[in-house]
């Protein structure tokens, strides 16, 4: 019956539990564009600082962008290192937006002046996510070595003023966890679109500094309580999102529920799970479709 064929009682449903094999390509691509960074954050999960010797060159980078477009991957997040230090940063962003890909840029915010904020707004990013790991300069700058809280807040304000969806990401540590509520309130007052956080991961430089960084169970308990309260307080005004699991819990979950996303690191190696060292492909040897 035609009627049955057309009936969309299919409804629209959330995809939870749907096998990733059902999809023609990833739904989300996380791309660490580079390793170089102007900061030396104690809690960096990537040990960012200097460039990797074998990072993709400009031609390889743009070829990868084209493959993402060809595979109709709808949503890409660009991070680093500090992605705005990449010489092709704007060329990449413009290419993705010209091809209608939803784009999120994760940055430390230190290169966003008014001109850049305007350019971001014109490009129509899904969002710009800025790391703000403290509500006071002393706390922020203790963690984010060479950082400057005021400059970062100024960048957030410029983006909001320019009409860019601006998000703040906050990594809790022993040094800053007590400022969580203060920072969320500040974010709301600044007109931030979303506040993102979750437990610190024991990888990269954060792993090396674990003993001085990792909050206690009691601190985490209070932290999540604060987040629950703020989530309710700002419902409908600002998204307060927190991921309650640590790396091990995440890995256990992913064994049962493989992600429909892929992570590519600066040298073109592809991973299914960021915190693990295992790679599932290499863009220098395989096409994205093959991976």
């Amino acid at each position: 019956m035609i009627e049955n064929e057309l009936r969309p009682s299919l409804t629209v449903e959330q995809v939870r539990g749907t096998s990733f094999n059902d999809f023609q390509s990833p739904l989300f691509m996380a791309w660490q564009l580079n390793s170089v960074c102007n900061l030396e954050c104690l809690h960096c999960c990537e040990e960012a600082g200097h460039s990797m010797p074998d990072e993709l060159n400009s031609k390889e980078v743009m070829d990868f962008c084209k493959q993402i477009v060809d595979l109709k991957i709808p949503y890409v997040a660009i991070s680093g290192g500090e992605p705005m230090l990449h010489p092709d940063f704007f060329k990449i962003c413009e290419f993705f937006r010209r091809n209608s890909i939803s784009l999120k840029v994760e940055t430390n915010g230190l290169f966003i002046d008014e001109k850049v904020a305007k350019r971001f707004a014109e490009l129509g990013f899904r969002s710009v996510q800025i790391s703000v790991d403290g509500a006071t300069p002393a706390t922020f700058e203790k963690l984010r070595i060479k950082g400057n809280l005021q400059k970062v807040l100024d960048a957030c304000n410029r983006l909001v003023k320019a009409g860019v969806n601006t998000e703040i990401v906050f990594v809790p540590t022993k040094f800053n966890i007590h400022e969580t509520a203060q920072l969320i309130d500040l974010a709301h007052d600044m007109g931030i679109y979303g506040f993102y956080t979750g437990k610190i991961m024991r990888i990269g430089r954060a792993g090396q500094n674990w003993d001085i960084l990792c909050p206690s169970d009691a601190e985490y308990e209070k932290f999540f309580q604060v987040l629950k309260e703020k989530e309710v307080k700002y419902a409908g005004k600002m998204k307060v999102y927190y991921y309650p699991y640590d790396v091990i819990e995440e890995l256990k979950y992913r064994l049962e529920h493989p992600s429909t996303s892929l992570l590519v690191i600066p040298n073109g190696k592809a991973k299914l799970v960021g915190p693990l060292p295992f790679i599932c492909g290499d863009l220098r040897q395989d096409t994205l479709l093959e991976i």
């Binding site: 299919l10 409804t11 709808p74």
Partner: peptide, 21 residues
């Protein structure tokens, strides 16, 4: 192949439909 996927990327919500949808 099963229909379509609808990705609301701002809220990061994913939905699927069958071929009719």
């Amino acid at each position: 192949k099963f229909g379509a996927v609808v990705f609301e990327t701002l809220r990061e919500k994913v939905f699927v439909t069958n071929e009719t949808g």
